[in-house]
Simulated assay, not measured.
Amino acid sequence: MGELLGVAVLGAGHMGADHIRRLDRVVSGARVAAVADPDEARAREAVAGIEGVAVRAEAEAALDAPGVEAVLIASPGPAHEEALLAAFARRLPVLCEKPMVPEPAGALRVLEAEARLGRRLAQVGFMRRYDAEYRRLKAVLDGGGLGRPLMLHCVHRNVSSPPEFTSAMLIDSSVSHEIDAARWLLGQELTAVTVLRPRPSAGAPQGLRDPQFALFETDGGALVDVEVFVNCGFGYQVRCEAVCESGSVRVGDDRGPLVTTEGSAGTRVPQDYLVRFADAYDREVQAWVDATRRGRVTGATAWDGYAASAVAEAGVRALETGARVMVDLAPRPALYA
């Protein structure tokens, strides 16, 4: 590795542009060496003012640009499998935004390709593992002072959904974060899912089943419920409460500065996930850079990415059929034991 880790960022949209800014201005030990986006004008706008960045339309061309030593994938999910396999072929460490690959079959191909290498190269970007509140929640559960966790109650709300958002995406895009967080917090696999559908909100676009209520079962006997509401209208909220045998612990209560003015008092509700989890993204990317420079890979694995996709697929089938659907997981390769 050079003095600064040269990173190729694939994707210069909302998430990619934020990571480009983060690598250039926030994270130490790294630099943006290349950016790839089919919209080259957007890519050039994202790197405006950053010297020495190769801008390419194709992902593989960016991977082959001078000075590239690692890859951050922030392109749309359907492009991830090809990009991950191309990075593996070049033995480049990767931080891949979720979903690792949307479809379990493609995620399994990535998993098997990395297993054949005999070493981990990929980290999946489940940033809640780096959020200060979630890490405190994890520490409490791991400490065992509250006894075994019996239930997780989760809330995931967005101000509004983008035009292309579908009913299935409430599960395989939004709730995928809760899927990984539940697996990580509990140390258990999710084995079955049921999705209930209340009447759609008047604020939801025509035809969108929003909100939804997902119930997951685990192989350790715990239950996880998730209220997902992506057109709540008032803010971005993420909450999680673990109910254990002798107590409970909750995060995400929006206890920011209390402002009193003109006969009212209140706190500001974040409007965007990049605001709510800004610190978590910073810590995640910094940890990835530090580990990569030491020749290590930490954080969520390709197995975690595959498991999330498999659970989400079962959740979408549960949404569409109204039935309880079992999660079908392939055997875990020894690399991820």
Rank of each mutant, 00 (worst) to 15 (best):
V228H: 02
L152A: 01
G125R: 06
A300G: 10
D64E: 14
C240E: 03
G256Q: 09
C96E: 06
A168P: 00
A302S: 15
A132W: 03
A107Q: 07
F126V: 03
L196A: 14
L190I: 02
A41G: 14
A79D: 15
D39W: 09
R128M: 06
R197D: 12
L150Q: 09
V316I: 14
R239P: 01
P104K: 13
V243Q: 13
L223Q: 03
L190E: 02
G305E: 10
V316G: 08
P76R: 14
L215E: 12
R90V: 11
R21Y: 11
R128L: 06
A122P: 11
D172I: 03
G67R: 03
P270S: 12
R109K: 12
A204P: 09
L4R: 13
R296G: 02
A87S: 12
V71P: 02
E60A: 15
V68A: 05
V159Q: 07
L85T: 05
H177F: 01
D37N: 15
V297M: 08
F234W: 08
E51Y: 02
F277N: 07
S309H: 02
T191Y: 01
L92Y: 05
M151W: 10
A41W: 03
G16V: 09
A192D: 07
V269G: 01
V195F: 08
A105W: 03
E51R: 09
V35E: 04
R296M: 07
Q212G: 08
C96H: 09
E112V: 08
L186V: 05
V9Y: 00
L108R: 14
S174Y: 12
A222R: 01
S264N: 11
I20M: 10
V297Y: 04
R199K: 15
N158F: 09
L85C: 06
L319Q: 13
A48D: 13
C232L: 11
A12G: 12
A54R: 08
V47I: 13
D219S: 04
G203H: 11
V7R: 00
T260R: 09
V259G: 03
V238D: 02
C240G: 01
L4C: 04
A139Q: 14
L335V: 07
